[in-house]
Simulated assay, not measured.
Amino acid sequence: MTKKSDQQRQKIMAVSRELFTQKGYTETSTREINERAGIAEGLLYYYFPKGKRQLLDAIVREGVDDRVRIARNMTTSWTRATIEQDVVSLFEQMWHLLGDGIGYQEFIITIRNRAMLSDDQSAWLVTSFESVQQMVADRLFAVTSAEITRERTDQLAMAIMATFQKVIFDELLIRNRQELPAGTHAFISRQIHLLMELILKD
């Protein structure tokens, strides 16, 4: 794909993200996407032959790929001495990705249209989440294996991810906040400290 073609494809995706977030997937027509993107009618199908469904898939996949990439990049540098802060930093990076701009749009579109995803897409979403949890578990085991078993690090990773999910869903979906409220950093730090103490001392 040429640079110009890639830019055109990204422009179509950017416009689609905006419209799907503002109006919803079902209420957005391909004609609106074409008009907003300033492209000839039918060009959308050149880049996305299956139309809106393929666009939805691409947007969801891009958002999840970003979260997996962040987790992979961040967890590689975790150490035993800084483990609690490392975990909190991962939460903060996830929040910044989901609470701002494109990441927020991708997150909202994914949640709102969860029921419209195919079985394959749904399975892929679950697998992507599990891969992030597995990265967390792998790194936790790497830095704490002298203290606890693999089973316990898996349990700790599951509890950490559940904590992340609760805060992110509460703030972005229930309270509709894109700014992290004061005190959230301290709350997450306390939760991670308690989890670490509970698992490591058990």
Rank of each mutant, 00 (worst) to 15 (best):
residue 110 T to E: 13
residue 191 Q to K: 06
residue 125 L to F: 04
residue 161 M to L: 14
residue 32 E to A: 12
residue 23 K to A: 10
residue 159 A to Y: 02
residue 70 I to A: 00
residue 38 G to C: 12
residue 172 L to T: 05
residue 114 R to A: 10
residue 112 R to T: 04
residue 24 G to M: 00
residue 47 Y to V: 09
residue 4 K to H: 05
residue 100 D to P: 02
residue 193 H to C: 03
residue 192 I to S: 01
residue 61 R to Y: 07
residue 53 R to K: 13
residue 96 H to A: 12
residue 124 W to N: 13
residue 123 A to W: 00
residue 189 S to Y: 08
residue 161 M to R: 10
residue 50 K to F: 06
residue 99 G to H: 04
residue 21 T to D: 13
residue 91 F to T: 06
residue 41 E to M: 00
residue 136 V to G: 01
residue 32 E to K: 07
residue 86 D to F: 04
residue 32 E to N: 11
residue 137 A to V: 02
residue 53 R to P: 00
residue 177 R to H: 15
residue 122 S to T: 01
residue 53 R to V: 06
residue 146 A to N: 11
residue 99 G to A: 14
residue 18 E to L: 15
residue 43 L to E: 09
residue 178 Q to S: 05
residue 122 S to M: 07
residue 23 K to F: 13
residue 90 L to N: 10
residue 121 Q to T: 08
residue 81 A to N: 01
residue 4 K to C: 01
residue 81 A to E: 15
residue 10 Q to L: 11
residue 180 L to E: 03
residue 29 S to P: 00
residue 102 I to A: 13
residue 4 K to Q: 03
residue 94 M to C: 06
residue 132 V to R: 06
residue 153 T to W: 04
residue 23 K to D: 12
residue 51 G to R: 09
residue 124 W to H: 13
residue 202 D to C: 00
residue 78 W to G: 06
residue 21 T to F: 13
residue 48 F to Q: 03
residue 47 Y to Q: 02
residue 91 F to L: 11
residue 113 N to C: 09
residue 42 G to E: 14
residue 167 V to R: 14
residue 75 T to I: 09
residue 99 G to T: 14
residue 31 R to K: 11
residue 171 E to S: 05
residue 97 L to K: 06
residue 169 F to R: 13
residue 8 Q to F: 08
residue 141 F to A: 12
residue 173 L to I: 15
residue 115 A to N: 08
residue 144 T to N: 12
residue 47 Y to A: 03
residue 43 L to Y: 02
residue 122 S to V: 00
residue 29 S to C: 10
residue 95 W to G: 08
residue 180 L to Q: 11
residue 18 E to S: 13
residue 105 Q to R: 14
residue 116 M to C: 01
residue 64 V to Q: 02
residue 18 E to W: 09
residue 162 A to T: 12
residue 106 E to C: 02
residue 80 R to Y: 11
residue 24 G to E: 00
residue 28 T to R: 12
residue 142 A to C: 09
residue 144 T to E: 12
residue 64 V to R: 06
residue 132 V to W: 05
residue 185 H to T: 12
residue 116 M to P: 04
residue 64 V to D: 05
residue 27 E to V: 02
residue 186 A to Y: 01
residue 16 S to M: 12
residue 28 T to W: 10
residue 88 V to F: 01
residue 124 W to G: 07
residue 148 I to G: 04
residue 47 Y to T: 05
residue 111 I to G: 08
residue 167 V to Q: 15
residue 7 Q to T: 08
residue 18 E to I: 11
residue 35 E to N: 10
residue 118 S to E: 15
residue 105 Q to I: 03
residue 151 E to S: 00
residue 130 E to T: 08
residue 61 R to S: 06
residue 149 T to S: 15
residue 172 L to K: 05
residue 170 D to Y: 02
residue 200 L to K: 03
residue 202 D to H: 06
